[in-house]
Amino acid sequence: MTSAPLIRIARAADLAAIDALFARSYGRLLAADYPPSIRVTAIPLLSRAQPRLVTSGRYYVAVGAEGTILGAGGWSPAGPGQEADPLPEAADVGRAHVRHLVTDAGHTRRGIGRALMGRVFAEARTAGIHRLDCLATRTAVPFYSALGFVTLGPVEVALRPGIDFPAIRMQRLLE
């Protein structure tokens, strides 16, 4: 039996390990739901952690017994001036976004993503957030649905001029 990973706030020193996690996981995790034409252009762009987000104090890593980062993810408040608000809308003090959540492809379905999201929910509530928005991959929709998110519909995420990534906008109210 494997022990539960430690969930802690990410540090700048984790950046390379988070990039490595993204690089080794996105290709495998997204293969069933996205054609090669999308994966070949999108995965290199998705596989780069955002330093400002990682060091925001609202981004977390799941660390296994060997010290390996097995998952990462966090949240950011909505609105102008935030960590590249993925859904720029009118400022809403009680709204935030789930950001760049991934579990190591070799460690899925072991509670890592759920543990990370538990930390996101707790910290966001403490900060006065009442609604979380999420731009989920097609692959992650069942995961987020199981956590109480509802599907609002498909969206195209502009990763770079001429490179869009199909995602699903989801939302969850926090009690």
Rank of each mutant, 00 (worst) to 15 (best):
L87A: 05
E123A: 13
V40C: 04
G118I: 01
A42F: 00
I69G: 07
G128C: 10
L159C: 04
V120C: 07
G153N: 07
P154V: 09
R48F: 09
A167L: 10
S56K: 05
D133R: 12
A90F: 12
L116I: 14
A62M: 03
G79F: 03
L173H: 13
T41S: 06
V61W: 01
R48Y: 02
R110I: 02
T55F: 00
L159R: 01
T103V: 15
R172I: 02
F149R: 12
E83H: 14
V63G: 11
P35N: 07
G162N: 09
P142A: 11
L174P: 06
A146C: 07
A90Y: 00
L173Y: 06
F143I: 08
G106C: 00
L45Y: 08
L45D: 06
S145W: 00
A65T: 13
V120D: 07
F165C: 07
G113Y: 13
R109E: 11
R39Y: 01
L116G: 01
A72M: 04
V63P: 09
A158W: 12
R95T: 12
D133F: 11
A65L: 11
P142N: 12
P86S: 03
A90H: 13
T126K: 09
A90L: 14
P44S: 02
L45C: 09
G74E: 12
